[in-house]
Design a protein around this nucleic acid. Sequence first.
DNA 1: TGATTTAGTGAATGATGTTTACTATGCTGG
DNA 2: CCAGCATAGTAAACATCATTCACTAAATCA
Lengths: 237, 237
Amino acid sequence: MTVPAGRTTASRRERVRDATTAEIKQTARRLLVEDGPDALTLRAIAREMGMTAPALYRYFASHEDLVAAVCADVLDELTLTLSRARDSVATDEPVERLAVACRAFRQWSLAHPREFHLTFASPAPRPPMTGGDIATPEDLSFGAVFLGIFVEIWAHRPFPVPDEAALPPAFVAQLRAFSSRVGDVLPLGALVAYLTGWVRLYGAVTIETFGHLGFALDDAEPMFEAMLDDMTRALRA
Amino acid sequence: MTVPAGRTTASRRERVRDATTAEIKQTARRLLVEDGPDALTLRAIAREMGMTAPALYRYFASHEDLVAAVCADVLDELTLTLSRARDSVATDEPVERLAVACRAFRQWSLAHPREFHLTFASPAPRPPMTGGDIATPEDLSFGAVFLGIFVEIWAHRPFPVPDEAALPPAFVAQLRAFSSRVGDVLPLGALVAYLTGWVRLYGAVTIETFGHLGFALDDAEPMFEAMLDDMTRALRA
DNA sequence: TGATTTAGTGAATGATGTTTACTATGCTGG
DNA sequence: CCAGCATAGTAAACATCATTCACTAAATCA
């Protein structure tokens, strides 16, 4: 995804093509943000660009593919945002780096709810996790940001983790498979903490952006901070 | 929502009208389940029923209204399912009643992912929580199931809650408002536990149904059970 | 029984994704 | 330099969608 392509090897044609492709995705995203997911139509995008809809088929095989490309862009941008947030804290405070990244995830999502929902809460046809021909939100780089922070935390000072023998064997088997897939960078118990953190973070942000806490709270930030507290405390102890 | 209407006062016309309304919603839901949210079209519904699309406007003001009605039905069904699950455990084990209801929520959602996403993860135009003219998932009955269980737990044996003085004042203010809205059935700290539980439950189920744990796990049940353990332990201690 | 309300149809409008045939334009090899 | 070709774009068409409007037929009611 998002291969910058070698500077010199780009012919003129390739350059204008890439520019058009980028403009299409940009326009699509603008329509999504301004007028909602239903406004994300080929005809509207083409209209905005002073083109006709069939022309877009020179750049994307289908409407679905275009949406997927927008999602990939969104994911890249979010990944970059999270990396930057993480790097704004010194490496000798890895738990704080995690907290800052989590807050950045929430802030970005609240500021970009439609992009967030399209990318993280759409019933997209997800391939059964075979190789990596399509980008799911957990694809490498994105998930790697948080996983990397957990590696840092663990290296800095290991935190209490559930005993492997206490976990259901079927769970351990899955964890082993996942662990080897990511290069065995953490003990299984720490992977559980990582996954638990992802579940809590995703859940807190998703429930807030969908307004499913509005029945009780106007501002969910204190709840979010309480969750972060709970999470980071367990990683400091 | 879903007023059964007095038995005797229903004229013949009203009865067949209600039957047709029900059939429309049923058909809509079947199309949603079988062919996905994009198949939920007025024309398709009418076609399935041997009617024409404009006829449906005698029953629903718009496509959006029909979808909202389907959501309301889904919510009612889920609420009923959760109540039943809760009632399958004796009232002297209220924490277990909570666990059983949470499992029922997950099971139902996994068995009905499209209904779940339509009702709980759609960017529907949510009114800013004024009165109650439109049904959001947290509308009375649904949220009341879980809130009721927390009331039972608290009555059976109070659990440790954060000190009110330790919470941010702005948070306390919101909690007070919510508390009075639900009749002050619990101390503020216990309300925090209730809301935290809802966030964790919603998050765990949503992340699983969207497949956002698939990058690590094939079966998220052990993670869910671990979450439940963590949650119920805090309510027993 | 006659008036009125109701359920439903058919045709039409404007929008959508997608395909096909066609037309320029720019690039490239002799 | 120019003949040939790949590319980017258009216009027209098709099937589908939500929605509106004029109309019909049937059920209800006074």
